[in-house]
Design a protein around this nucleic acid. Structure first.
Lengths: 344, 344
DNA sequence: ATCGTTATCGGGAACGATTGCGTAGAAAAA
DNA sequence: TTTTTCTACGCAATCGTTCCCGATAACGAT
């Protein structure tokens, strides 16, 4: 089954003009008489002519498309980011090609090569939780492929980055729990390789230390698959609850981990916040509908997508090589709800 | 900033061979000596040569990419569908290009043209809630562009479709409420133009009529933006509650409408299911975490994406024009939870 | 009458890869 | 020695578009 669109050549043949003339008429060149222009334009409209972007891509050596690499789409945070990406890219005439790493390093490498060979004009990347080797990015970046990282970034590559103040957000969340009388505060987080994990851990740690509480390694549990596997969350929680000095509150990093933890707690028939309090990084749209309503740190996902895309397009469309890069730090929002407030 | 990949010409120049020889060597043609082959292969490996898929697309008149048109990504159902699409497309060597209509007819038209002109090999479509005119699809479909519809379909175009048994699902949900003693059952649904809306309405209606309950037009409220606007959901609910014969239960169609309704009910300080019961079409991952836990009809979203993609690729890769089409009907799942069960 | 100018348009190369066809050179057959 | 037969490669067209050059005609100026 073949889909055969009208080409510039077809128009030329039908009108007895050369392809060059048709091309110029279509682009409104000054060196084409208005009669011819009108004729061409009308005919093109009539046969519903659309320029073939593949031919254009080949000629212009650009595809007007940008590749996105995230761990998964079916995640509140990332789907909101993609929305932000889409909102900018669409208006600037770029297509968005999305690929999911599913938190797998191998899959990320394959996807990146796939996208690059597909001649995307640039890449928007949030690293997978397994990624430690950046060679696949470095290689392409050195060859001149524009890349912008967001959320889960690396400092091995000098380029634009868009992040949030994870340290502050985690600090704030932990401090909130301390102020509400919790003293044994645990932390269930994502893979230790991720930038966001390290930053959040520091914020959590400093909040404890600066408020006279000890930092206990045993209180920190990592979910190396970023919470994509239910069992790792359950395991983390069970391990925490086995400790003799059982935590009375905890901070979770990431959508999956937050809701996964809440589910696991419910399955254990523990009450929140009476038995254990919870503050989570989450971009769920329905924190108010949960039981209990959930205290969350919300990331400006949509905005992150927008900013990252603007930065990427600015590199792509820059006439001269870009040499100075920035790291945009956006602010998180903190919403206090029931899950973290001890009822007196 | 330019990204300049190695071409077959570069290899030829470096090795003193013509492009044809290099091309053939790369594809292992029998008419190239093994010496030359080895030389080319080794050099290509060394400089990390990747064939330019854009040039290939131009020549082969196919792009190995499929376009997806949904109303929005940041929606449980659609993001799960996209996951299913991606899982198949990836393995079959296709790229997925996603576009969002945001429930706007105009935006849908623009996106479809954008994708078609971008030379996607086929289209996976779920209609926007505003769409009544199918001309933009008919036009392309008649020209031979393979299209498969899923979830929100049209019978104006004869092609493969993947849907669920919406009639049965709505019937079942309504019956469940009736069996639980509810007699004044309302229905908040999406745009009246959508196939899913009509089918669900029929299921709802028949369940009422076949169980000795009257069907009341006033009990049916439409959200023409599919619930994307909070106010339309609130408005629908308020209108329902203003009726003197105030409903004691209702069925909601769609993720947004379901959670939106629950939020609106909470804001009115009504209790669920004591004051009003609720059964909703929803693909949320956390129905158990809601308060109350939510009785849901869940669509096999991932599977829908997979099936639709398989059907589309089968058309794309078919040697001869496809003339016989099928409509795959998948089964929904019904989960009874607290929101619909009257506590005696 | 000759030249320059301007307005309009066409020819053809280029983008990267594939592929049918042609052919040089060597080996094999006559 | 001559002819045939392979082997192993190059040439050029092709996909749709743009754009650098040229080409042509009309027209006014000298």
């Amino acid at each position: 089954m073949k889909y055969e669109p009208v080409t510039i050549k077809d128009i030329g043949k039908a009108l007895g003009l050369s392809t060059s003339t048709v091309s110029r008429a279509l682009r409104g060149s000054y060196e084409i008489s208005s009669d011819t222009k009108k004729q061409v334009l009308e005919y093109a409209e009539k046969v519903n002519y659309r320029p073939n972007p593949i031919a254009l891509s080949l000629k212009e050596r650009r595809s007007s498309s940008i590749g996105v690499v995230v761990c998964e789409i079916a995640n509140n945070f990332f789907s909101q980011v993609i929305n932000g990406i889409d909102s900018i890219a669409y208006n600037r005439g770029y297509h968005v090609i999305i690929s999911q790493s599913h938190e797998s390093y191998e899959r990320e490498v394959v996807n990146v090569h796939h996208l690059a060979s597909r001649s995307v004009d640039g890449l928007l990347v949030s690293l997978s939780s397994e990624t430690t080797d950046m060679a696949h990015f470095i290689n392409l970046h050195e060859k001149g492929l524009p890349i912008v990282f967001f959320d889960r970034v690396t400092n091995e590559i000098i380029t634009h980055k868009v992040i949030v103040d994870n340290y502050k957000a985690a600090y704030e969340a932990t401090l909130h729990l301390i102020k509400n009388g919790y003293k044994k505060i645990a932390h269930i987080t994502s893979s230790p390789f991720l930038s966001i994990t390290k930053e959040r851990l520091e914020g959590y740690k400093d909040a404890l230390l600066e408020n006279g509480l000890a930092f206990n390694e045993k209180y920190v549990k990592y979910c190396s698959h970023g919470g994509m596997i239910v069992e790792e969350i359950e395991g983390a929680l069970h391990n925490l609850l086995k400790i003799k000095q059982k935590p009375d509150a905890f901070v979770t990093a990431g959508d999956r981990i937050t809701t996964g933890s809440l589910t696991a707690i419910k399955n254990l028939h523990l009450r929140v916040p009476e038995d254990i309090a919870l503050v989570g990084f989450s971009n769920t749209n329905i924190p108010e509908l949960l039981n209990p309503t959930l205290t969350t740190i919300r990331l400006p996902a949509f905005e992150m997508g927008q900013v990252a895309t603007e930065l990427l397009i600015s590199i792509i469309e820059s006439k001269r090589p870009v040499t100075s890069f920035e790291t945009r730090v956006l602010q998180t929002e903190f919403f206090v709800r029931e899950s973290s407030v001890k009822l007196q």
